[in-house]
Design a protein around this nucleic acid. Sequence first.
DNA 1: TCATTATGCAACCATTTGGTTGCCTATTCA
DNA 2: TGAATAGGCAACCAAATGGTTGCATAATGA
Lengths: 109, 109
Amino acid sequence: MTFVNEESVFRALADGARRKLLDRLHANNGQTLGQLCAEMDCTRQGVTKHLNILEEANLVVTVWRGREKLHYLNPVPIHEMAERWISKFERQRLAAMHQLKQALEGDDR
Amino acid sequence: MTFVNEESVFRALADGARRKLLDRLHANNGQTLGQLCAEMDCTRQGVTKHLNILEEANLVVTVWRGREKLHYLNPVPIHEMAERWISKFERQRLAAMHQLKQALEGDDR
DNA sequence: TCATTATGCAACCATTTGGTTGCCTATTCA
DNA sequence: TGAATAGGCAACCAAATGGTTGCATAATGA
């Protein structure tokens, strides 16, 4: 059951290192911790902490293969964020642009 | 010129109080600080800090009307986030779902 | 004009965050 | 079997974050 907690997802996405990890899994899914540590500019333990936050937000799911831990992207939370939150603002986008312009014009009238 | 800094946008969206402020502007655009303070469970100064972070991320634009400060939603950053970042993951959504399922099946095979 | 209203600014505080180091455990393979 | 490899866990630390209080300033209107 994939229950998505909005708060934990937004929090997880707030950090550049974590977004980079998601980008790297997006480019190459199912990587081990060791693989993900390469090209990250912090220690393995630091990367683990970031991955744990991504896992708690359900953005990443892990599978053990022997002594290796494989990390897979879970596309559900991002999809739900897009559906529930982003799209709400996207719908009123042009109207909001118009209101903003009107306000800025009236400013120095 | 609306240049959007990805980092500041994600950071700004990470806090529930700030998302609530955006939601309230979405429901009723152009509100004053005083209006926005109602229904928020922190002081006016606390709300100001949140609004400043939203403004620095260009998610909110302000216009002075006399002694009142009006707050308007700027839909551009959320739109660009959707276009640049979200959509990249949405495109590979079904493929990622499939890879995840395969990995989870292989798990207890 | 003078009280009221709307907001800004600075200092301060506790908690969270992102990162480290050090050590432990489990799997692999020569 | 024993060294090398992959990763976990705990303690610690500095800096950032979210919040407060107190006081200052500017616009409004009776």
